[in-house]
Write a protein that binds this DNA or RNA. Structure first.
Lengths: 112, 112
DNA sequence: TCTATATATTCGACCATCCGAATACATGAT
DNA sequence: ATCATGTATTCGGATGGTCGAATATATAGA
C-alpha cells in the first residue's frame, strides 16, 4: 500500500482545491448542500445547460466531493462531506472582510 | 459604492479559491503560516527558484492573501488571514478521510 | 422493440496559467 | 556613480481547463 509522499499529498491537496475553485462548481456545491438533486434539477435551478452541469459534476465526482445514487433513470447527486462547505464559507469570510476593509480604506482616505 | 451582485461575489469567491489551488502556493502559504519570511528565504526553504516564488507571491498578493512590508532592500511576506490555513486544513481533512476510506475499501474487497 | 426521458461524452476552438531562462528594477552601501 | 543584493517582470512554449453544439449512452415503460 504505497503511502503518498509529502509532495504527492501536496499535489492531491491542490487537485482537490482546484476542483472547488470554479464559479459554477461552487454554485453546484452550495445547491447540493441545500438539497440533494439530480442533474436536470440542478441545471434548471442554476440556469445552466445540462451538459455543462454534468461535466462539472464529473470533476466533483472524480475528487470524491459528491456522491451519486441511481434512482431509476435519473442520478441523484449529494454532497460527500459538509466540511467542503465550511471551507468555502471560511474563504468567503476572508473575502468579505478584505472587501469591507478595502472599502473602509477608500472611504477614509480618498473620500470623493 | 457598487455592491457586488451575487454572480460577481461568486466570481470573486472562485478567484480567491483559485489563487489557493496551486501546489506551490499551498506550500508557500503553509510556510508563511509557520513564519513570515522574505522572498529569498522562502525560495531557499522551499527549494524553488526565486522568480517562481516571486510570481506566486504576486498572485497571493493580488488576492490579498498575503501582506508585504519592506525591510531595507528586502520584502517580508506574511499571511494576511489565518482562516486561509483553516480552510486548507479542512480540505486536507476531507482528502485524508476520503483516502483512508478508499484504502479500507480496497483492503476489504480486493484484498490482494 | 420502439420511445421518451435522463445523463454522459466527444469535438474543436478559445483562453488562462505555469514554467525556465534571461533580464530589468529597486534598495542600501561604498 | 558604482556595486551587491534582493525582488519583480518579460518572453516563449507547453499544458490544461472551459464552453457550446452535437451526439452518444442508459434506463423505464408501452
Amino acid at each position: 500500500m504505497s503511502q503518498p509522499a509529502a509532495k504527492e499529498i501536496n499535489l492531491l491537496h491542490a487537485n482537490l482545491c482546484r476542483a472547488v475553485a470554479d464559479p459554477k462548481r461552487i454554485l453546484i456545491l452550495y445547491a447540493l448542500d441545500e438539497q440533494s438533486r439530480n442533474v436536470t434539477a440542478l441545471a434548471d435551478s442554476l440556469r445552466m445547460p445540462q451538459p455543462t452541469v454534468s461535466r462539472h459534476l464529473r470533476v466533483l465526482r472524480q475528487q470524491a466531493l459528491v456522491t451519486t445514487e441511481r434512482e431509476g433513470a435519473s442520478v441523484t447527486y449529494a454532497l460527500a462531506d459538509r466540511r467542503i462547505i465550511e471551507a468555502l464559507d471560511l474563504m468567503r469570510q476572508v473575502m468579505n472582510d478584505a472587501l469591507r476593509q478595502r472599502s473602509d480604506w477608500l472611504l477614509q482616505e480618498g473620500g470623493s
